[in-house]
Every structure is written in C-alpha cells, then in structure tokens.
Computed example of a mutant assay.
Amino acid sequence: MTSLDLCSDSLDGLSVGDALGAQFFVPGSGLAALLDGDPPAGPWPWTDDTEMACSIVAELRGHGGIDQDRLAARFAEHFEPYRGYGAGAVVLLRQVRQGVAWRDAAGAAFDGQGSMGNGAAMRVAPLGAFHAGNNRTAALQAWRSAEVTHAHPEAILGAVAVAVAAAEAGWSRLTRSRPEPAELLDVVLAHLVDGRLHAGIVLARRLLGVSVAEAAYELGNGSQVLAFDTVPFALWVAATRLDDYPAAIHACVEAGGDVDTTAAIAGGVVAAYTGSGPGGIPAQWLARREPLPTTYADKSAAWSRGR
C-alpha cells in the first residue's frame, strides 16, 4: 500500500464517521437499530469535519505536505457555513476570505488566546495516515495544519495526538502488527507536553477496561467542543476498537455529545488500520455517505485505480 492509499482509507473512515455520527445528536437515539444492522436511510450529509479534511488531503496529494498559506486559502475557498462550522471558525474563515492574514485571524480569536476547539483535531487523521511510519513528521505536519485556524497549544496538541495515532495505526497495518491499546496511547503521549490534553490521554490509558459510558463520563464526549474534551475519548475508542470500525462508531454514538466529531476522529484513525475489508468500513455505510466534494472527485477515482 502507498501513503495515499492509507490516506484515502482514513478519509473514508473520517467522512463516514462524521456523516453517520451527525445523524445521532440525541444520546442513544437510534443506537439499537444501528447495532442491529439497520442504519439510517441515506444519503448522510457530511459536516465541516469532512470539508476541511478534504482540503488537507488535497494538499497532501498535490504537494506532499502542508503549506500553511495555501491550506488557509483552501479552507477559506471551500468554506460553507451550513456544514456546521462553529461560530469562531465562521468568523475566522470569513476574515481570511476578505484578505486578513490567517495568523492574525487565528491569534486574535477568543481575546487573543486562540481557539481551544476540537476543529484542528477533527480533520487531521488522513494526514497522520499519510505519514505512517514517521510519527515525528506526522506530529510536525499536524502542528502546521492546526496553526492555520487554532493558535492555542491545547488545540494544536489535539491535532498532533490524532495525527500520531493515525500514523501509528497505518504503520501497524503495513507491518501487520496490531498494537495493544496502551501501546497506541503511549506512542501518542510521547509526542505531547503537559497540559489538559496530555492529562486526558493519561486518564484514557487508565480507563482502557471500562465501559463506553464510564469513559465518556470521565473523559468528556466533545459536548464542550474543546480539544481536551474530545480527543481523549475519541482516541480511547480508537485504541480499544482498532480492528473493528463499526464498533468504534457505535461507541461514539452511544456516548452522545459531539458525535460527528468523535466519530470522525475515531473513524479516521481506525480506518487507517482496517481499511474497508473485514472489520473495516461497511460498504453499505460508505454507499450512504454523501459523495465527497466534486472538487476532489478526481482524487478518489485516481486512488481507486491505483489499488
């Protein structure tokens, strides 16, 4: 497999998780039917998680890495408010469209503190999968991708954590060696510094044997829309269900909260390991996801032909 193959699978996992998760904003709503193999009727619209992930993937496919100015322009060009962007992202991307430098816009957010939101983490798993086998590069590129919209260290580290997890998942797929849940989280922790995000993932490691409900209660389920309220639980899900994509999405739906985002993060990481084969993204789910943006349609066709 190539880096683009892994990236493509991760994008599919992210976008299906995002689109399906968006159908379940009421905790427990429809979960029983989903578990019985009866997901909602399609098509499932994807949200800002997928829209921004597609911009990152376009950068990787066209240039092999993140140029921050170019990525900011992509984000602004493809920004559609109805996709569920947060208020802060709406303001920032409109400013970038109007010619404000992205660094100034991101730095001015939230009275100069920068955003601590989960937006940088929700879109970054395909970048990590692209750099499978090179966690350091995945971390650095994730940092660069995050800075375009999020100046707060907690949000940036949230993106780093997800990218490293996806890079490790992709490498484990290539080497056919599934890491134990604690091993995956240890790799992530090795790329972080002390803070609330780090503390959350340390706690996630201690909770590997608990139920979904307890993990969500202790770690958060994204309901605050903050990186440290979202990423620890999503990576707990990915670590404990790395070889079972449907189970990972079921866990995110069961937990409630910001379901599309936790499912996008967990789905992107897990799909880097599973792809769409056994334990991977169900074909029925992929068919019900709204097609990816036509701007990127050539990408999917080219990657499919190359497999």
Rank of each mutant, 00 (worst) to 15 (best):
A182L: 03
A182K: 09
A182Q: 06
A182F: 10
L184M: 15
L184H: 15
L184N: 05
L185S: 11
L185V: 12
D186N: 05
D186R: 04
V187T: 10
V187I: 13
V187Y: 08
L189R: 12
L189Y: 01
L189D: 11
L189F: 04
A190F: 14
A190N: 10
A190M: 12
H191V: 07
H191K: 15
L192P: 10
V193I: 10
V193A: 15
D194R: 06
D194T: 10
D194M: 04
G195I: 09
R196G: 12
L197Q: 00
L197C: 02
L197H: 06
H198D: 12
H198Y: 14
H198L: 11
H198K: 12
A199H: 12
G200K: 02
G200V: 08
G200Y: 06
G200N: 13
G200I: 12
I201Q: 07
V202W: 02
A204H: 02
A204F: 01
A204V: 03
R205T: 15
R205C: 08
R206V: 01
R206F: 05
L207T: 03
L208Y: 05
L208D: 06
G209N: 05
V210G: 05
V212C: 13
A213M: 02
A213L: 00
A216R: 10
A216W: 00
E218L: 04
L219V: 04
G220L: 09
G220M: 08
G220Q: 11
G220W: 13
G220S: 06
G220V: 05
N221E: 04
N221W: 07
S223Y: 09
S223C: 14
V225D: 04
V225L: 11
V225G: 09
L226K: 14
L226T: 05
L226E: 07
L226M: 09
F228G: 08
F228V: 07
D229F: 08
V231Y: 08
V231E: 14
F233R: 08
F233V: 13
F233A: 14
F233L: 12
A234H: 10
A234D: 00
L235E: 09
W236N: 07
W236H: 11
W236E: 02
V237D: 02
V237S: 01
A238W: 08
A238K: 11
A238V: 08
T240M: 01
T240S: 13
T240N: 11
R241P: 11
R241K: 14
R241M: 07
L242P: 15
